[in-house]
């Protein structure tokens, strides 16, 4: 039998991750659906790894220079998302408070 193509392994990881995502997301409480959207937005910016590779590429050819430019722009856009997404999520989550028993005394 031939060796399994690495792409098949990647497909397996992907399919399993869809299932993990399915069960994990259903367990998210509806009250936190907005933070869920902002945090998924932040983590999808992990696409920055692609932009970093392009930005770091050697500029041997014209195509490579173009790719490098795209990469730098990509790093910039993804950084807006990473910092903005995680920080706004943090800001939102900090607001969710339980009933404060001591507040009743005032």
């Amino acid at each position: 039998m031939d060796a399994v193509d690495p792409n098949v392994f990647r497909l397996a990881i992907f399919v399993l991750a869809v299932f993990v995502g399915y069960y994990v997301v259903w367990s998210v409480t509806p009250a936190l659906h907005t933070p869920l959207m902002s945090v998924t937005n932040a983590i999808s910016s992990v696409i920055i790894v692609g932009a970093l590779i392009a930005a770091a590429a050697a500029t041997a050819s014209e195509g490579a220079q173009f790719a490098k430019g795209l990469g730098v722009l990509g790093v910039l856009l993804a950084s807006i998302n990473i910092f903005g997404g995680f920080l706004v999520t943090q800001r939102m989550l900090a607001m969710y408070k339980k009933k404060d028993k001591s507040a009743g005394k005032t």
């Binding site: 690495p6 792409n7 990647r10 990881i13 992907f14 399919v15 991750a17 869809v18 993990v20 995502g21 399915y22 994990v24 997301v25 259903w26 659906h33 869920l36 959207m37 998924t40 937005n41 983590i43 999808s44 992990v46 696409i47 790894v49 692609g50 590779i53």
Partner: peptide, 23 residues
């Protein structure tokens, strides 16, 4: 993630994709 052969992107993409679909 498939193009770049990157596991982090694959997993994240699957998570975010299914999260948005469920919402």
């Amino acid at each position: 993630g498939f193009t770049l052969e990157n596991t982090a992107l694959l997993i994240t993409g699957a998570l975010v994709g299914s999260s948005g679909a469920i919402l």
